[in-house]
Structures are given as C-alpha cells and as structure tokens.
Amino acid sequence: MKHILVTGGAGFIGSNFIHYMIQHHPEYRITNLDKLTYAGNLENLRDIEAHPTYTFVQGDICDAALVEKLMQPADAVVHFAAETHVDRSIMDAGSFITTDVYGTFVLLEAARKYPIERFIQISTDEVYGTAMSPEGVSRPSLETDALMPLSPYAASKSGADRLAFSYWATHKLPVIITRCSNNYGPYQYPEKLIPLFVTNALDNIPMPVYGDGQNTRDWIYVEEHCAAVDLLLHSSGYDGEIFNIGANREYSVLQISDLILDILGKPKSLIRFVQDRPGHVPRHAVDTAKLRRCFNWSASVDFHAMLEKTVQWYREHETWWRRIKEQDAGYKQYYQQQYQGNV
C-alpha cells in the first residue's frame, strides 16, 4: 500500500489522520480531497503542506470526474468527508443527504472501477441512536444492533454506512466500516462541544448546556481513533466487516463542562442551561470487544490528561479559533441562530 486517498482531510479528524499517517508512514503518498466548506481549514495542515508525499486537491466528492481521476492511482481510500454536525442537520438536512449519501455513492462507484486494496468508510455511533439492547436496556451499542438514527445527520451517515456495505455485498469492494464515538483533540471546529466550551470559557462567555446536561457520550482522543483506522487500513481478511471504535470513557455534558471549568480555573456560573435540542440522544456508547478480539487493540490514554492537553492546545492556538469565531460569517450565523436568546 503506497498511495492513500483521504477525503475530508482538511477537517478535524481527517487532518489529524493525515498528520498521523505522515508521522507513522512517511513513505506513503497522501492525496487529500477536500471541498473546504466551513469546517475544512488548510491551517490544520500548514506544517506539512510542503511534505514531498502530500498533495492537496480542492474539490467535491460529488464531482464524479474528479473523484475518478484521483481514485485511479490510489491503493486505498479513507473516507472522512461528510457534513457532521447534528444541530446543523436539524436546521438544513439537504446538504447532509447530498454530501453524506450521494458523495459516498460517487466514491464507491469510482472505487469499484479500480483495483483498490481497501475502502474505509468512516461512520459514527450516531447511527445507532440511543445505546441500548433490543429489549430497551441501556448498554453500549454492538455492531449487530439495528440502526436507529435520531437526527438527519445520523440518518445520512446510516445511509452512507449501508451503501458502503452494499458495495461489498454486491461488488466485493474491500470495504471496512468504522463507527466511532465522540472525538476530541486539536483542530476541532469550535461549534462542537469541547472546543465551544473551552473557547467560550476563555472569553468568559456562557457555555450552553442542552436540557439538564445529563446526556452522556463515550469520548476518544482523536489520535487514538486515527491509530485504530490505521490498523484497519492495513488489515486483511475483514472485508465487509464493521468495527466500533471507542474509549469506554463515558461522561455527561455537565461533567465535561465542570472539568473544563476546573482546568481553566473558571467559575461554574459560566454554565448556562438552554432548551434541549430535538431528538437529543441520551446516551452514545459503543462496545469495542470486536476490535479487541480481532486486533488486541483498545484505547489506552488517560481522558483527564488528554482533556487537559486539548484545553492547552486551544489556549496556545487562540489565533486559530478566534479567526473562526470572530471572522467566519457562517459560524457567527450558526451560533446566533442556535443560541441567540439562550446564552
């Protein structure tokens, strides 16, 4: 495997994955295809933009001609590109369907025309809806659980997930599907929970907590997610398989808020409870036993240490996030529409 096509590589997880691959596989050619929508940011990759094995191509995964051109020399695809924010999908579902479902279709169609070795479909634990057994008992989601998406974002990712599986079932395309829990770490767009709360707190702006703040998520440091994807990328004998990726570290939104305020030495009065969002999932968590069983892999870093490291990154990269929050018209419009009158 010598040439990897990464879609959405200027986004949060994609850019971290490219950094990871260049560090661990410096001989690989990496082509990054990204449309540079609001969450795509070339600043995320400024330090490696001149790396001799890295190429950036600005373009849309829905552009079949461009995708075929980039697919032809590739040995593998890691497909991160997607509209990913639940709140935005509630406000405007159409772009999610176009990018997440149709864009994935375009990539799969191109991939089946060329002898690629692996297609990694990056899905999400959002596709399961609330983590529970078929009998309604709360527990981490299994790969075999039914998909019960509760937001347009989750539905669009469910569609892409199942479409990718169908290309293995029908065309024997060497697909592996990953469903990961909530990521955190550097370069995360500041509308997402942890960077939003950190940057708001740094500016002494209220942190908007939906409902009572008891909704829980499993949190994985982004570099560990990248390590798991790298492992699956180089695996053999797992075509058509689905793997949950998570850290088995569940915290509620309110607990995350408290931890961030403690790290920053800020008062709890910055927590501001706001009206809950429609279809808010009470618990997301994934069972990662399959990944441990097949690869003896599990997340190992300490959550509190990595959260402190993440908070420190945002402290040290104020220019990065302040440009988005203060100069990006799309971000300001979203924030005002989502929280105006509530914070």
Results as ranks from 00 to 15, higher is better:
132 M>V: 06
175 V>Q: 06
52 P>A: 11
54 Y>W: 12
182 N>C: 04
301 V>F: 07
22 I>D: 00
231 L>M: 11
285 A>C: 05
76 A>I: 10
193 L>P: 00
335 Y>T: 04
130 T>P: 03
184 Y>P: 01
217 R>A: 01
37 T>N: 13
209 V>M: 05
76 A>W: 08
169 A>D: 15
225 H>S: 05
151 S>E: 06
219 W>E: 14
246 G>S: 10
271 I>N: 00
43 E>F: 05
330 G>E: 13
189 Y>L: 08
56 F>K: 01
162 R>L: 15
160 A>C: 04
173 L>S: 02
314 Y>P: 02
100 D>Y: 06
99 T>K: 05
279 G>K: 05
191 E>T: 05
233 L>R: 03
8 G>E: 08
196 L>N: 12
103 G>N: 10
114 Y>L: 03
49 E>N: 09
43 E>V: 14
93 A>T: 10
339 Y>D: 02
67 V>H: 02
122 I>A: 09
115 P>H: 09
323 R>P: 03
204 N>Y: 14
299 A>Q: 12
147 L>P: 00
40 G>S: 10
88 R>L: 12
243 F>G: 00
119 F>D: 01
133 S>M: 07
44 N>S: 14
226 C>L: 07
135 E>L: 11
256 I>P: 00
334 Y>G: 01
94 G>C: 07
123 S>E: 07
161 D>I: 05
233 L>F: 06
70 L>T: 10
313 W>H: 02
191 E>W: 09
65 A>N: 14
337 Q>G: 02
54 Y>A: 03
214 Q>S: 15
231 L>A: 03
202 L>N: 01
209 V>H: 00
293 R>H: 15
50 A>H: 15
83 E>R: 09
341 G>S: 09
279 G>N: 12
118 R>Y: 02
75 D>A: 07
203 D>T: 07
318 E>D: 07
81 A>C: 05
99 T>H: 02
